[in-house]
Simulated scan of single mutants.
Amino acid sequence: MFAKLREDIHAIIERDPAARNAWEVFTCYPGFHAILMHSWAHACWRAGFKWIGRFIAYVARIITGIEIHPGALIGRRVFIDHGFGVVIGETAVVGDDCTIYQGVTLGGTKLVAGTKRHPTLERGVIVGAGAQVLGAFTVGEFAKVGSNAVVIKPVPAGATAVGNPAHIVRKEEQTRSEKLFSAYGVSPEGDDPLSKALHGLINHVARQDEQIERLAATIKAAGIACPNLIINDKLDSARLNRLVD
């Protein structure tokens, strides 16, 4: 037990630059307290003392603002940063080395008791603040869920899910530090793929406008009459790109 406590404290110090020492983490980090009390609640739940497990989870919620159902499976070195408003459902599984920020919900979308209703986070997953991961699917190893994303489908290993509903941004190989820590699930150069696609379409149309203008000028210079040729207003690509950003 004490070895696990030391491991959890070291993991928090490694991932939170604001954590100055083990005593500060032990006394002042609600995420650490929530994980500790969940281990008690989960032990009672597995031993058949369901009410006691639920009561411990309820007390933990009052103290920390973090609600973890005693039936949820929480791995080693899990870091719930800030944590207020985090909800983790009964059949959720949180793998080793995961990081969860405030306002996250690992929720279910079914009403059938006794079935897998909540998501599984594999090793090293980072879930940004306010994200909602809803359903009985898997978020793969070292994947990231951006802040305020609403994830309702599986996320491949190493990918990033952003938006509402979430869509997938595939990432290149990450260093160990990038895998373990990415503040709020935000990655460098992690632009929204829909935004990139819209920028590409806008720039493509702008280039087509320029080509059409040159063709029209060439035809006119050659003395060829084209009475039905209509030149539309020029696309303001700069303004549209600013709107997409």
Rank of each mutant, 00 (worst) to 15 (best):
H69C: 02
G48V: 02
N232D: 14
H42A: 14
Y184F: 14
V162S: 03
I68W: 00
V112N: 13
G158V: 05
T99W: 05
K234P: 08
G114P: 04
L180R: 08
W23K: 13
E14K: 07
P227Y: 06
G200E: 06
A92H: 00
N203P: 03
V93L: 07
Q208K: 10
G158I: 07
V155S: 11
S147A: 14
D96S: 05
R61Q: 01
K171H: 15
G53N: 07
L194T: 14
L194F: 11
K153E: 13
S237P: 02
K179V: 09
W23A: 12
K196H: 11
A41V: 06
A34M: 05
G75A: 00
G124H: 01
V162A: 02
A41F: 03
P17K: 09
S237N: 02
H42C: 03
T105Y: 09
K110T: 15
G114F: 09
P17E: 01
T115Q: 04
K220T: 08
Y101A: 02
H118S: 01
L235F: 07
G108Y: 09
Q208A: 15
I52S: 14
E122P: 05
I152V: 15
W45S: 04
E189N: 13
R207G: 05
T160N: 00
D209C: 09
A238W: 04
L36I: 15
G108R: 01
K171S: 14
H167N: 13
T27C: 13
E24R: 06
S195D: 13
L180C: 00
K234E: 13
V125W: 02
C98M: 03
N241L: 15
E7G: 11
I62S: 05
I231T: 15
R170V: 12
V104P: 05
I152C: 03
A72I: 10
R15K: 13
N148T: 10
I68N: 03
F142A: 08
L180V: 09
P17N: 08
E141L: 01
I74A: 04
T175L: 07
Q174H: 14
A47K: 11
G223K: 04
E210K: 10
K179I: 14
K153A: 11
N164G: 07
D96F: 00
